[in-house]
């Protein structure tokens, strides 16, 4: 068995007396697309920055691409492509100048040819002299991805790459990620979009600095041990009252409205079913068992970890 692309253990990062990353252990196999999930401020960005050598961990060890995190920070930088959460290329440089700068820093040769080819592949050859700051969000994101893959890294670290990007651009972006993974590049991508999490081979869920779930989507959903029912009626006003009743009923942990359908989720399947049956039949609305979604699972995990913090 080959060494994993990312193998970090017990990472801890503190700012003052606040522990932002608390004993996080993550393993990502080569060629895998690993999702890194968690609510805002959960420590995803900090963890990614530690992995690419931008921050020094207060505790923990790790190997990235077989190189030691503490000793080989510079070597790791050459093999890793890091795409920051915010667009962090130069807005006052043109598209071509940005790529040229990156190519120079990675000592890519022949520089001009690689830059031209990258521009062609991006479909930006005709706009090469346009300032990067004038690009739309979707194009900025594509430019950033092209810039951080130009030196053919073996590992891509993407920090919320699709924030503020329209659905079509997001889908194209994910097609590109899968294409890169097909070439053997390992990808770690952080996101809080559930549909994106489902596009990953495996996911890691982090909350309040702690890693609280990991595995394939099915494994994470199954591991939460949740039961879900759908309660469906015809009128919004009626469903609002049903939702109120359900929230107060025993065995019900979450009630989430989707139009006139309610997702009712609970840990205790028997108690949940009894409550749903009673309230739904009392109100004269339809109800049926359903698959637990990843989103239901994450809401549950978030609530649970907040309880741990309190």
């Amino acid at each position: 068995m080959t060494e994993p692309a990312i193998d970090v253990r017990g990472l801890v990062k503190r700012y003052g007396d606040k522990t932002v990353v608390d004993d996080v252990t993550i393993t990502v196999e080569k060629g895998e697309i690993a999702g890194f999930l968690g609510p805002n401020g959960s420590g995803k960005t900090t963890t990614i920055r530690i992995m690419c050598g931008l921050l020094k961990p207060d505790a923990g060890t790790g190997r990235v691409l077989g190189m030691d995190l503490a000793r080989d920070a510079l070597k790791i930088k050459r093999e890793v492509g890091y795409m920051t959460q915010r667009f962090s290329f130069y807005e006052d440089l043109s598209i071509a100048e940005n790529l040229d700068f990156v190519a120079g820093l990675y000592r890519i040769a022949p520089r001009r040819k690689v830059v031209d080819r990258t521009l062609e592949e991006l479909g930006l050859a005709s706009r090469r002299n346009q300032l990067a700051g004038r690009l739309s969000g979707g194009w900025k994101q594509r430019l950033a991805l092209a810039a951080c893959t130009m030196h053919q890294p073996r590992l891509l670290l993407l920090d919320e790459p699709t924030a503020g990007v329209d659905p079509k651009a997001r889908r194209e972006f994910w097609d590109e990620i899968h294409r890169l993974a097909g070439q053997g590049i390992t990808v770690l991508v952080s996101t809080h979009y559930m549909d994106e999490a489902e596009r990953c081979h495996r996911i890691n869920y982090i909350s309040y600095g702690k890693l609280i779930a990991k595995g394939t989507v099915a494994e994470v959903v199954a591991g939460a041990g949740l039961t879900t029912f759908l309660v469906n009626g015809d009128h919004g006003g009626q469903m609002l009252r049903v939702a109120q009743d359900l929230r107060a009923a025993p065995g019900v942990d979450q009630v989430a409205p989707f139009g006139t359908t309610l997702h009712v989720v609970g840990r205790d399947g028997a108690a949940l079913e009894a409550s749903v049956r009673k309230i739904a039949e009392g109100a004269g609305v339809r109800w049926a068992p359903a698959e637990t979604s990843l989103e239901d699972t994450f809401i549950q995990l978030m609530g649970a970890s907040r309880d741990n913090m309190a």
């Binding site: 050598g53 931008l54 930088k77 050459r78 890091y82 920051t84 915010r86 290329f89 990156v102 820093l105």
Partner: peptide, 14 residues
């Protein structure tokens, strides 16, 4: 301030 430092440091410039 422009947020480009993060990127610059992530690249292999000494």
């Amino acid at each position: 301030e422009r947020g480009t430092m993060e990127n610059l440091l992530a690249m292999p410039a000494s």
